[in-house]
Design a protein around this nucleic acid. Structure first.
Length: 109
DNA sequence: CCCGTGACGGGGG
DNA sequence: CCCCCCGCCACGG
């Protein structure tokens, strides 16, 4: 049914809500889902979201704002390209003004 | 079945 | 400030 109890489904639902031009972190999503220590599973879930084009996985970075998952987007700059195409600047491997662009489901939702 | 690994994060030394 | 370990849990070898 819609709203399955699956952890993966819940991850997808939250990630889908990340606004254009904003970003969040694996840990923030995990915390919002009630298991703050399962940030790793959030990454695993997004790993399986490659076929779903309605999941903006590129808007999820680690708690420091680093693009730790860029290697899973094909090239080495695909993730960065996607972010910059929506106005999110990336310096080196980190999102510029991360705190300012951070969309934390725990406080925003 | 045991073990290493991973898109993480917090805590401790 | 850096490094290591632990919790989490699915998967492949």
């Amino acid at each position: 049914m819609a709203g399955e109890d699956n952890f993966f489904q819940k991850v997808y639902e939250v990630v889908r809500l990340i606004p254009y031009g904003r970003v969040t972190s694996y840990g923030a999503v995990a915390r919002y889902l009630g298991s703050s220590r399962s940030a790793r599973m959030v990454g695993w879930a997004l790993n399986s979201s490659h076929n779903m084009d309605d999941i903006p996985a590129h808007r999820v970075v680690n708690r420091m704002g680093m693009l730790t998952g860029k290697h899973h987007f094909g090239g080495t700059s695909a993730m960065q390209q996607m972010l910059e195409s929506e106005g999110v600047k990336v310096k080196g491997n980190t999102v510029c003004n991360f705190q300012g662009l951070l969309w934390d489901p725990n406080t925003e939702l």
